[in-house]
Design a protein around this nucleic acid. Structure first.
Lengths: 351, 351
DNA sequence: CTTTTTACTACACGCCGTTGCTTTAATCGG
DNA sequence: CCGATTAAAGCAACGGCGTGTAGTAAAAAG
């Protein structure tokens, strides 16, 4: 189904997305979006009325009237993002450009239950909210949680290590307590949203590899996050890499995660990063992506080693080079991505 | 970029897609599409004017005016599809519903060159065209080719075993010779299009596994074929399944394809199907899909064995069952899918 | 200063789905 | 048997989308 509201929202999002990557002009927006100059003028004037864009000077390119520069008003809209791990809650405040403005971190009790969590979330959110925010600039809160969960319904199913979380409608609970719109997604998905939102059209096919105690990936395919039928895509840690390998906690044998963690426990960084390299090379080949972003505690402890380990296993001299990078957002990537996921609900391309 | 033409085309495609799955009524179309009843009425009247739909009786559901049944006029539009293998060319004629109406098969000379191929394609196309087709019912020709190739540009790059095919603009060559619109895609992609086009909304996240001399997959993710940055996605045969496994023709070790073909050569069908099972289970977990379709010469020789081998490796008693099936199109699946890919260029959802 | 070139906008327009209402055709209730 | 009720579908007016045409604004070039 598509109607005129969809049409407008879609084109608004296209223009805003291009504007996010830096100062632009109407002419350039028309060229890069495929919209006619008239349509761009209308869209831009809507966005200026909403306070999302401002005109900021001119740029001269040869003869003729100079182009009017347009700039995103990054702090016209803000969002909060949370990362929930088994022992820690992190909440960050980001602006429309995806810049992290502030953060708060608090420990979570062992095997915490939903009410405890919602209260703690509310406490951190209130702290960040009261300092800066007057008026309606704060759009809502995104939550990046460990899986499995359902992004569409906002229900957490049964994450390992959290016995009190059996089919908990977290999105509804959080919306009620915080009085703000809430979106819920898997941590790996919010992380890849962070990269996609900040890098824009440059990043359309990418994988974000999150290496911590487990190994999960977030997939950006053709400009959209791939979540699968039940938001369960990206469980890459338990993919078989060695048929007769060592047993894994998941019950099967020779999983990527088992091989990686064994090598890491031995202190064999070369072997550990090589495992990740082989796994990523398989992914690149399967999905035909041109960007790989590495993140997670293990990677951030030894960024160069993991980056080089992955690069070494990727095919060289290829007609399509694969860009391998470490997330510039560091420990904030999941929480910041959750905030950007919420921003994208309002200002991203509608479905 | 989106405009009113896009809007109309999109909604037309939505309605036509629903109509493809059997006789429906305007009310049901409105319910299932999310469009308003008036919008459906307008769309349907457009489609009737174009000869794509007809009213065919009524259906009574309780009180009130009975619903008018609508039926797809399947033979109002036809398309041809070709499958190109290293030793054989197959061309089929399908209607708008994806039903195969006719076929022609011809051997191809060893290491055939582009001109030879285009002439042979033209000969088979002409044969199928002259028998049935008067007027403008034939929309064009789809070609499913072995990779690597570029779907967007229509250029075949450098398929192994075909030394005369270095960056050949096959789509342009074929369009010129045949005088018909042509689309080009990898064989695995056209095969998954065949399943998607025929099964409609029921199939939104699926993998088609094509097991022949190699092993490739076609991915349908969130209702769209995933091709990757350079139409190279789905090269699954050379994914590592055993780190220290036997050497593969690709230069690496322990690839799925190498393990499978070794087992098959030994005549060990259980082992061969189990390898495919493990590989598919990994895929299902990674992509979170709910449908697996098996196809290809090896599978069609022992369909039950492959189907059961795959089922055995998939997680059981899961909250999300995975449906495993054999393609009902048999040897035609790639060629028929190529025809449906062409149909979808005209009557599928626009990008 | 005039001409040329380029950026941008004002406004009428065609066409999209939507809204409100009417017509059509069945069942239901007496 | 027949009016009341219910549901499907069409008609007409409408708001809003991007588009096309024509015009204005602001620079460089001559």
């Amino acid at each position: 189904m598509a109607n005129l509201r969809f049409l407008r929202g879609y084109n608004d999002a296209v223009v805003l997305g291009l504007a996010r990557s830096g100062a632009v002009t109407r002419v350039e927006l028309a060229d890069r979006s495929g919209l006619t100059p008239q349509a761009v003028s209308k869209v831009v004037s809507r966005l200026i009325d909403d306070g999302l864009l401002v005109e900021s000077g001119t740029r001269n390119v040869g003869v003729g009237k100079p182009r009017t520069l347009l700039k995103l008003v990054a702090d016209s809209r803000l969002a909060l993002g949370a990362q929930v791990e088994r022992d820690e809650l992190r909440v960050v405040l980001t602006d429309l450009a995806g810049t992290v403005l502030d953060r708060a971190v608090a420990p979570l009790p062992r095997d915490f239950d939903p009410p405890t969590f919602v209260e703690e979330l509310n406490r951190l959110v209130d702290g960040l909210r009261s300092e800066r925010l007057r008026g309606e600039r704060l759009l809502g809160v995104g939550i990046g949680f460990v899986g499995p969960l359902d992004h569409r319904t906002g229900v957490v199913h049964y994450p390992t290590g959290l016995t009190e979380w059996q089919d908990v409608p977290l999105r509804a609970l959080a919306e009620q307590r915080l009085g703000l719109p809430v979106v819920l997604d898997k941590d790996t998905n919010t992380a890849v949203v962070a990269e996609a939102w900040r890098r824009g059209e440059e990043l359309r096919d990418a994988v974000l590899v999150l290496v911590g105690t487990g190994l999960g990936i977030g997939m950006l395919l053709d400009g959209r996050v791939h979540r699968g039928v039940r938001t369960n895509a990206g469980e890459y840690g338990h993919t078989t890499l060695q048929l007769d390998g060592p047993p894994c906690v998941c019950g099967r044998s020779g999983c990527i995660e088992a091989l990686h963690n064994l090598a890491a426990a031995r202190g064999d960084l070369v072997e550990a990063t090589d495992i990740v390299g082989v796994a990523v090379a398989d992914l690149v080949q399967l999905l035909d992506i041109d960007h790989v972003v590495l993140a997670g505690r293990a990677v951030l402890a030894e960024p160069a080693a993991y980056r080089d380990g992955v690069r070494a296993r990727l095919p060289k001299d290829e007609w399509l080079p694969v860009d391998v990078s470490i997330t510039p957002l560091g420990d904030d990537v999941v929480a910041a991505g959750a905030a950007m996921l919420l921003l994208s609900e309002f200002y991203g391309r509608p479905r």
